[in-house]
Design a protein around this nucleic acid. Sequence first.
DNA 1: CCTTGACCCTCCAGTGACTGGAAGCTTTAT
DNA 2: ATAAAGCTTCCAGTCACTGGAGGGTCAAGG
Lengths: 127, 127
Amino acid sequence: MNIGKASETSGLPVKTIRYYEEIELIAPQRLENGYRDFSAVDVQDLKFLRRARDLGFSIDECRMLLELQRDPARASSQVKSIANGKIIDIDRQIVELQSLRATLSALVSECRGDDTSECAILEGLAH
Amino acid sequence: MNIGKASETSGLPVKTIRYYEEIELIAPQRLENGYRDFSAVDVQDLKFLRRARDLGFSIDECRMLLELQRDPARASSQVKSIANGKIIDIDRQIVELQSLRATLSALVSECRGDDTSECAILEGLAH
DNA sequence: CCTTGACCCTCCAGTGACTGGAAGCTTTAT
DNA sequence: ATAAAGCTTCCAGTCACTGGAGGGTCAAGG
């Protein structure tokens, strides 16, 4: 299967797939004409990568997860701890965003938002 | 005031301040020896930038906000609409993160996390 | 057989918002 | 006089792609 089809099947852009090869996440075979030739396993890996990226795992985390997936002697506890770390990250991000939202929202509610120049938001930022 | 003091007073790293000059967010004077010389207004602007960045505004948004701050004929409605746009962005991000968290959390709860290789998380990603 | 268009290839540059480091001034303190 | 700290510019790297130039390959239609 060449790269266009692999892209369509995996849902990853062609450019991204080439990039993943460059950083050695995947290593598809090459045909005599130089075209990449994706096996069923390669395409599986691409799908795996897409889902893991969508879930917020970094490329390095994806690399670890992929290695674990390929390792028959893995312990599921290793995978679980990576995933738990990610959940903690996400929770931290959510808390931070909620705090930003509260601050912004307070500023906005104090700003009249008319055609005069007085503005509580700018004042709040200049503080 | 030279850059080290401006950094200390504004809370922005020296490198960041130089970068802000490069992208023309600020334009401090220069002394005869080539050193940047920050006025009180420059330092105010730096503080403003730090707070706005902390609140999640992009550099381009900060540029708009700074221009509005400097413009005595501004309408507070312009500022308010930028801030409201940012709140909408933040809400979108929060929703997305919550959804990721739910998915991850469901996978994690199905994974035994022991020393066996069977792992619901990897299976979920491979799907 | 030729052409057209859709693929594929590599390589280079740019994104956002910095950050690190090298190489070389100037100033300050001892 | 010298050493340390602070300043300057310029170049490269970060993360995870993305866009484009320039060129080779392949399948279908005339």
